[in-house]
């Protein structure tokens, strides 16, 4: 197997005096959807923020496409082709939907296979997220939670990333939106984008993911194929059930 797209070794993170992550190892390969599961407070969001360079006090070695990004600044990481769609969405509520997309836009990239990638455009994204198409000139803050969640993903895609850190997209949105999210992730996967998906919703994660890491108290307690976790009742009871 070739080098993973994203590789994390010995990741530690602290907020003030509190240590949140204790030496995490994880990998994301090209074209793969990997779920990062665990209960509330297990460290899923912190893992993503740390990879993105949004946590000041972090240690460990993170490489993306073979390049060391352990000390890179967030905008450098985003420009290397690693996208981030945060859990709390953080859309720019005063800007219109189109302007939100514009902020996320980055120049087209060369694909992992060496051929030019088809860059994401608002039109291509509207095909993926039909709800957004009608809302183009509306202030983003006036959209429903589900629409805002889609905008968050769409905005990240405008950067033409090779991989996305997708933090709990199913949280707090209607079941119908969760279904759309699942469709969206599967179509994204077909375009070759790799996704690290943080989730608490096992059926949803199981539907879209190839592999899974389970986090508890800042450490990885389980890793393997998604299928295996689905069949491992003991592991599910230990790490996921509330």
């Amino acid at each position: 197997m070739s080098e993973p797209l994203l590789s994390v070794r010995g990741l530690e993170a602290r907020y003030g005096a509190a240590q949140i992550l204790f030496g995490l190892d994880l990998e994301l390969n090209a074209g793969e959807v990997v779920a990062l599961m665990g209960r509330n407070g297990a460290g899923k969001s912190t893992t993503m923020k740390s990879i993105m360079g949004l946590v000041d006090r972090r240690q460990g070695r993170i490489t993306f496409r073979g390049r060391d990004i352990s000390h890179a600044r967030p905008h450098e990481i985003a420009r290397a082709g690693l996208g981030y769609a945060p859990e709390d969405r953080r859309i720019f509520s005063d800007l219109t939907v189109m302007e939100n997309l514009e902020v996320g836009r980055q120049p087209p990239r060369i694909g992992l296979d060496g051929a030019p990638m088809t860059p994401w455009t608002p039109d291509r994204l509207f095909a993926l997220f039909p709800n957004l198409a009608e809302a183009g000139d509306r202030a983003a803050g006036r959209m429903s939670g589900g629409e805002q969640q889609m905008l968050t993903v769409a905005r990240t895609l405008m950067g033409n990333p090779y991989a996305i850190l997708l933090d709990e997209p199913s949280e707090g949105v209607a079941p119908i939106i969760v279904e759309q999210m699942a469709d969206m992730i599967l179509s994204l996967k077909k375009t070759g984008v790799a996704i690290l998906l943080s989730e608490q919703n096992l059926p949803f994660a199981a539907l879209v993911s190839d592999r899974v890491y389970v986090l508890e108290k800042g450490e990885i307690r389980y890793s393997g194929a998604m299928r295996a976790l689905e069949q491992d009742e003991e592991a599910r009871r230990l790490y996921l059930e509330v």
Binding site: L54, P74, I77, R90, F92, V103, G104, T156
Partner: peptide, 11 residues
């Protein structure tokens, strides 16, 4: 509105 997020989008 959110300068950190702007940074995380590559700006």
């Amino acid at each position: 509105q959110d300068r950190e997020m702007v940074g995380a989008l590559g700006v």
